[in-house]
Design a protein around this nucleic acid. Structure first.
Lengths: 335, 335
DNA sequence: GTGAAAGCGCTAACAG
DNA sequence: CTGTTAGCGCTTTCAC
């Protein structure tokens, strides 16, 4: 029976013959109201179609109950799962997601203004590039930030990340079983922090393992760049024994390119590994050997850290590194 | 040099030696303020790290500037693109996305409360199942709703949808070139409106085309269900000549299952078509013949309709049907 | 347990 | 063009 105009707590109070604050109390959990008043208020509220106005509540409590989630356009393909997890897990803690998409690093300034303006309780940044001065800006304004899928050892930042070191080591150990002579590392773009981290870890581990012939190419995380990079490489070089890709999508591109355009048998002539464990990496035609990110746990950790800092603004920065799962696909030759 | 505590327009006014409303005016575009005051205010505002409080603004203007976007967990795989488009295009019109994820139809009641509470300007529902009584509820509360990727001819609803009729016709015409004897229609789940629509359109068109042997199976839109359905079917029936899948993901599953477990040559022994035009449908190993949804245009239309109804609550419901593009892949036999 | 009253930070008439 | 004033709808002391 909702009216056209919004029903306020005053309207309900008048109708129910109680004070406005009584109505307010009824709608705030855990406040002491007599059963009688509560029933009366509830009844009239329902009849009138009253809903408390969250905006007014935010204004006075100075808690918006909203968390800004920044999604970079470069975010990798498993982000829909991440995003839906974030939304779900925040909802369970009675918070909402205010979504921001970020195209270029330049947009971050603007975003910062927006986010301040909306008085969000905190920020979760998915795969976005955050300079530390930006981070400091949020800090100054007392807005906690958690970087998802980032690992910034030096910085005073809240980060949650899959264990790249361990994961890539597991992948290389799989590859090493065949004693590959030539490695090709297909990195993500140079301006992606995750890409840089994965590449450097791979390079340093390969060194440790004593690999001698290691080359690097740069893609942009896309399927097509996986194809293009391999094609370009093969024009002037022999088939590498093993290709380490910074994400699954490029690995899939590499596999397709190898098979279709160069008649290379994956995994017998060339092994390929990816990273992320996206859904399609498990598809029959690819079966990429990869590390599956523990998305649900990563999100859980992000939210825990974030809310801890919302409650307690002075708690020190926290980093959590979770272990991904090695998926033994069929893109690495079995010795 | 932001303070720890939030800076308000009063603080800025005091510092700048002007009235509070002067500050307010400076921060609202299009209001007449002398250049001198504007500069003075801007300077002190910047110095003090002032940002207007959007919450307070929302309270008084009764416009939150937020649009609720409801994403059903069943939303098809192209939703990340949709979501990012929605966010981007709304941002361009100075609105934000408040994200809600919907698991089961039951949750919609709850969601409705939430959404009312947040005073959103409108709602965009992505592939969510909306009973018409729910729709009426929003209507009563003067909250405009646009259903994305839905077509409800009878209902008084704002809808935006790809032209399924035309798209599926094009697909069937491709298939018909080979004079298939047996059709298999792999539908999405029965509780998905889009799935039902696509299935019924396919069936009625097949009838028109004079197809005699048409069978129906039900999947859940997932890759695995594409595989499982085909496997189950082949246990008791011969290989169909043509498989019409309600989305690309199932089509990909069907293709993988056919090739890997039954040594069926796609497209020579069996043709497969999908729908949506998701990125992976174009991958070399699949090359699904499908209809690519004009996502950007669909989103643009959704937002136009939504904002029109925000401005003008009494405008009549509007439906827009946009044409998708036939992607001629390699999953249909060439005659 | 309940009501009165004082704001939260801003916008929007309204005079001047 | 600028300042004054009155709220937006709610939460939260504070008496009773």
């Amino acid at each position: 029976m909702a009216n056209n105009k919004k029903v306020t707590s005053y309207d309900v109070a008048r109708e129910a013959g109680v004070s406005q604050s009584a109505v307010s109390r009824v709608f705030r959990p855990g406040l002491s109201v007599s059963q009688k008043t509560r029933d009366k208020v509830m009844a009239t509220a329902n009849r009138m179609g009253y809903r408390p106005n969250a905006i007014a509540r935010m204004l006075i409590t100075k808690q918006s109950g909203m968390v800004a989630v920044i999604v970079s356009s470069r975010a990798n393909v498993n982000y829909p799962e991440v995003l839906s997890q974030v939304s779900k897990q925040l909802a369970a803690r009675n918070k909402r997601v205010l979504l921001f998409t970020l195209d270029d690093a330049e947009g971050l300034d603007d975003l910062f203004e927006q986010i301040c303006t909306f008085q969000v309780d905190g920020v979760i940044a998915l795969a976005a590039h955050f300079e530390s001065d930006k981070l400091a800006q949020f800090e100054e304004h007392n807005i906690p930030v958690v970087l998802y899928n980032r690992n910034v050892p030096g910085a005073m930042a809240n980060t949650v990340c899959c264990n790249h070191e361990l994961g890539i080591k597991q992948l290389i150990m799989e590859l090493e079983k065949n004693n590959p002579k030539n490695y090709l590392v297909l990195s993500g773009p140079k301006d992606s922090d995750v890409a840089n981290e994965r590449r450097e870890i791979a390079l340093s581990l390969l060194k440790e393992f004593g690999a001698e012939n290691v080359s690097i190419l740069y893609g942009d995380y896309s399927y097509q760049s996986g194809r293009d990079c391999l094609a370009k490489w093969l024009k002037k070089h022999p088939t590498p024994d093993a290709v380490i890709c910074s994400n699954d999508t490029m690995a899939i591109g590499v596999i397709d390119q190898a098979r279709e355009s160069h008649s290379i048998n994956v995994p017998n002539d060339m092994s390929v590994v990816g990273f992320d464990g996206i859904t399609s990496s498990a598809w029959q035609s690819y079966q990429v050997t990869t590390i599956k990110q523990p998305v649900e746990k990563l999100v859980k950790a992000s939210i825990e850290i974030l809310l801890e800092h919302v409650e307690n603004p002075d708690s020190p920065p926290e980093s959590r590194v979770l272990t991904g799962a090695l998926i033994e696909g069929n893109s690495v030759k079995r010795p």
